[in-house]
């Protein structure tokens, strides 16, 4: 009871005793866990390296800037590849996530068992980072843009699939009932009553994912899956920091641009 009576005075406290104890317990537990974790990290850290980090940073920036502007000419092709990895990867993900989400949504799934399989695919795809997918695909189909496209696509399935099936489950039921009552086939019911309701959000999610994928596509090259990440990896390994600076600038501009495009398109849709 937040209000206690002692003699004839009323004491007000924000929480009652049990809640306070639980809150304290929670805080102490969290602090302990964080402390232990910190010990582990700290044990694995060479603190003398950390101590001269500001110096390192200033040297690092000094070597990166001014960037090698001439290197830009060698970046156009990797940039085009990066854009393609993101766009084609998103399209691939969309192509698979679209039917998958109808199998995964409670109100459109043909069978509960199918639903669980679809949900499993979505979860696995989401749990694995695109860079890990890239590692795997480079091992299978060899380095190159194709591995990047597949990596981005495989990661996008889970992201889009999850948001898609959630929006299918949120559709209103009345139009479904009405279209069913006209004697329409199940596919027609889907295309006339569910699809119009979810298309705007599907489009928004896809554009949003494309924007994220541009960012992801800049790094899949680090493990050999094409795009500007290949140049980044080569430049870092060769300690060509002025080239690295140039690459950072290019990535910054491209990602800001894609964010702007995606915001504009989403606005136009809604």
């Amino acid at each position: 009871m937040p209000v206690r009576q002692i003699d004839d005075r009323k004491l007000w406290q924000r929480y009652d005793t049990a809640t306070r104890l639980r809150l304290w317990g929670g805080w102490i537990g969290t602090t302990l866990v964080v402390f232990v974790c910190w010990q582990v990290i700290s044990g694995a850290t060479r603190w003398e390296f950390v101590a001269d980090a500001p110096q390192q940073l200033s040297q690092f920036i000094g070597r990166m800037f001014p960037p090698r502007w001439g290197y830009l000419n060698e970046l156009w092709l990797p940039l085009w590849d990066t854009l393609n990895i993101a766009t084609l990867g998103t399209l691939l993900g969309l192509g698979i996530a679209f039917p998958l989400s109808f199998l995964a949504a409670q109100n459109t799934t043909p069978h509960p068992l199918v639903r669980y399989v679809a949900l499993l695919i979505i979860v696995v795809s989401r749990s694995v980072n695109s860079l890990i997918w890239a590692l795997l695909l480079v091992a299978i189909i060899g380095p190159g843009v194709l591995a990047g496209i597949f990596a981005i696509g495989l990661r996008s399935i889970g992201f889009m699939g999850k948001l898609f099936y959630e929006s299918i489950e949120e559709t209103s039921r009345e139009p479904v009932e009405a279209i069913t009552a006209t004697g329409a086939s199940p596919l027609q019911v889907l295309s006339y009553s569910i699809l119009p309701q979810v298309l705007p959000s599907f489009a928004g999610v896809s554009i949003f994912r494309w924007d994220i994928n541009i960012r992801e596509a800049t790094v899949v090259g680090l493990v050999g899956a094409g795009g500007i990440g290949l140049n980044l990896n080569a430049s870092v390994n060769a300690l060509q920091w002025s080239q690295v600076g140039m690459i950072f600038i290019v990535i910054f501009v491209v990602v800001l641009f894609s964010e702007w495009v995606s915001a504009r398109v989403r606005q136009a849709i809604i």
Partner: peptide
């Protein structure tokens, strides 16, 4: 990559 350059390899 940037932080590794700054702090060296490792979880920090």
């Amino acid at each position: 990559i940037v932080f590794v350059v700054m702090f060296g390899f490792g979880p920090f």
